[in-house]
């Protein structure tokens, strides 16, 4: 198998808050990572495990206390003048991004990033329209004030503002926080579609194991400032006990399947979404199985 090319790497990345004061705290502790191109990555970890701090290193908002961040093999801090380009190549959407909307119209707000990149008006125009379509903002909304939109629409507009820069890596910090379940799934599906369409890498910070299982290919698990593991999603969820011990869990449906297996039902391992579970149970019933009890 050909090893997929990595785009983002970290070498012994460490970050300490308030060094030299009594409040000193290491938020990221010697993290070594290799993130592949064209990949949907989930980032999970307990609150305060250092996920958000780690993400802010990827686009150079925070400078590592020690260690390096490499984008395409180049240290992003090697040339400070290029740091701005790094931010265009690694897009970061913060939690509750709708609070950063500021322009008169949604259009202008989405165009803010591309404009900073120095793109031509025509290019900006195509990008705004394309992105709005991908994220599900109707064209007539684009001429409205971002403050007149509904909560979900505001969120979409803010995410579109970063997507429109077409970053090679898009990082979203809990993009679904505070949305209703239907809005969540809808938004996640659109983000997935965006990833497939642009063949970029998307990193999704999430607290929902269900979302992680359903939408990501690989999982990055942080625990107490250290990288616990970075592996294929099913492989991570196989380590049930370890995940539970650090305050995380496996998707609920995986727990149900696990219990059924223990009761003697012949169900395959590696079932992490409701759809997979449905298919497995149906095929078992069709086989007339389940006679274990």
């Amino acid at each position: 198998m050909v090893k997929p090319l990595s785009i983002l790497e970290t070498e012994e990345l460490t970050y300490t808050y308030s060094t030299g004061t009594p409040f000193e705290k290491t938020a990221v502790d010697h993290v070594n990572l290799k993130i592949e191109k064209n990949c949907m990555v989930g980032v999970i970890g307990h609150t305060g495990s250092g996920k958000s701090t780690l993400m802010q290193h990827f686009n150079g908002l925070l400078r590592p206390t020690s260690g390096r961040v490499l984008l395409d093999g180049e240290d992003i801090w090697a040339d400070k003048k290029k740091l701005r380009d790094v931010r265009f190549r690694v897009g970061l959407v913060f939690q509750y991004p709708e609070y950063q909307l500021f322009e008169e119209t949604v259009w202008k707000d989405i165009a803010f990033g591309p404009k900073n990149m120095g793109l031509s008006d025509a290019e900006i125009r195509t990008r705004v329209l394309e992105t709005a379509e991908m994220i599900g903002l109707e064209e007539e909304l684009l001429e409205r004030s971002p403050f007149a939109l509904s909560g979900g629409q505001k969120r979409r507009a803010a995410i579109a503002g970063v997507m429109a820069m077409r970053p090679e890596i898009l990082i979203l910090d809990e993009p679904c926080a505070g949305l209703d379940p239907k809005g969540r799934n809808h938004l996640l599906r659109q983000i997935c579609d965006y990833q497939k369409k642009t063949k970029s890498t998307v990193m999704l910070v999430s607290h929902s194991m269900e979302d992680a299982a359903a939408y990501t290919e690989k999982l990055l698990v942080m625990n107490q400032a250290k990288l616990f593991c970075y592996d294929d999603t099913p492989a991570v969820f196989r380590r049930t006990e370890e995940l539970c011990s650090m305050g995380l869990r496996i998707p609920q449906i995986a727990g149900v399947m696990h219990t059924l297996r223990q009761k003697g039902y012949d169900l395959p391992e590696d079932i992490y979404t409701v759809e997979q579970a449905r298919d497995a149970v149906l095929s078992l019933l069709r086989k007339g199985g389940g006679a274990a009890c």
């Binding site: 908002l61 931010r87 897009g91 991004p97 950063q100 500021f102 990033g113």
Partner: peptide
């Protein structure tokens, strides 16, 4: 941080440019 992530420059440029750069921060 959020506006910097979108390429806003806050710490260089002429005075008028710097004043303009404050808009994306002050309004939110």
């Amino acid at each position: 941080s959020a506006q910097k992530a979108r390429g806003a420059t806050l710490d260089n440029g002429k005075l008028t440019e710097r004043a303009k750069a404050l808009i994306p921060i002050l309004i939110p």
